[in-house]
Design a protein around this nucleic acid. Structure first.
Lengths: 202, 202
DNA sequence: CCTCTGATGTTGACACCAGCAACATTATAA
DNA sequence: TTATAATGTTGCTGGTGTCAACATCAGAGG
């Protein structure tokens, strides 16, 4: 059971997760090292193996936690709006904002081509984050601001849009220096896409 | 000089590049190993250092080569069209198609957050590929199919769209199995975005 | 209270990797 | 022809992921 209280050194699993996030933020997901995580948690280099099968599983856990935060960011960003379509665009803003603030975390979440299916926790959190987007879309549909019908293609399109912006911005490939500039660009792009999705004949 | 003909073992630099592409395609960019590349090129584990400062520089070279291929893919895909806007959308198709066919290559090109500025070759090929997109946009503008003005924001938006699709598709996060389905979705998304960009007031 | 068992953490080892240094070889220029 | 620089090799160091064996502690059954 995971619910059991402390152990030898307090509950290490959570500590390792936190340490992993810190290490990734410091040296990037590429140079991320299991031993460094152990060091930061003041534990021997093999202790993590009692909580994670291998390095990949720890990364998957970090990614899963990232999806939770991502969903939160989207929800927070879109909360202040009462207009459904506006809320959708703002949730896109939240998506990009999250990526800009925790770029390494974001990388871990999406640059792991393998092990998607292998880690149900990862898939579940991802689904939850995606669902925030779908909810916004359905709301906009019900408000008549987007064409009725299956929300999935609309959601996938919107997702692709903000995901592309996020990725390119993180990589430094967008010619914007400050976060605000990127977010303004995000507003422009998502607005354009929303306009197009509304008028599309299909 | 780099321009000098063969050497000891023929021109290794090119051989290493080819081997690197093969290794990446086999084990992925994550598990990519300099020594494995050397092995594949039938050369000692230190020979690559005579042609690349370190592992990262070899990866940068692979990425640069990838951008060339990407630009080609975009050009080829959009060639058959005579309509300017259509050509733009088709170049987006070429972008996604490239990503689907050489996903590891694509990863190397974009998952390297560092060393963009450090490798002029990389930056240059990237610029060239981006320019293909800009050209298509400008053509569409001149044909009156997109609003006149600075093409850059339009290009960045379009790029973000197809890049997001490509990334998500590679990661297996889009619910499409076959390449054709992804490309069809790409057509849908880019058409929507094109529609939106055309009508946007800004 | 005591023992025992399993969960948790540690030590030590292996194979592998990136990169450095010293050496060997060969192509080219003087 | 010979010297020099470019190219390739061998061997090493410090670091990594992971396995196996061992140590320690928490809590259950008595």
């Amino acid at each position: 059971m995971k619910r059991k209280p402390p152990y030898h050194h307090g509950n290490l699993k959570k500590a390792l997760l936190g340490a992993a996030v810190k290490v990734i933020a410091k040296v990037g997901p590429r140079a991320f090292t299991l031993r460094e995580v152990a060091r930061l948690a003041k534990v021997s280099h093999n202790a993590p193996y009692r909580h994670f099968r291998d390095k990949e599983e720890l990364l998957a856990a970090v990614a899963a936690e990232g999806f939770e935060r991502l969903a939160d960011s989207m929800i927070e960003s879109s909360a202040p709006s009462s207009d459904a379509l506006d809320a959708l665009l703002l949730s896109g803003r939240g998506y990009v904002q999250f990526a800009l603030r925790w770029p390494e975390h974001f990388s871990v979440m999406f640059d792991q081509h393998e092990g998607f299916d292998a880690y149900p926790e990862y898939a579940a959190s991802g689904q939850r984050a995606f669902h925030v987007l779908v909810d916004r879309i359905v709301a906009a549909q019900q408000a008549g601001q987007l064409p009725a019908g299956d929300a999935t293609p609309l959601a996938l399109t919107a997702w692709s849009m903000v995901h592309g912006i996020a990725k390119l911005a993180i990589s430094g490939l967008l010619p914007f220096d400050k976060e605000d500039a990127v977010l303004e660009f995000t507003a422009f792009a998502t607005r354009a896409l929303g306009e197009g999705l509304r008028n599309l004949t299909w």
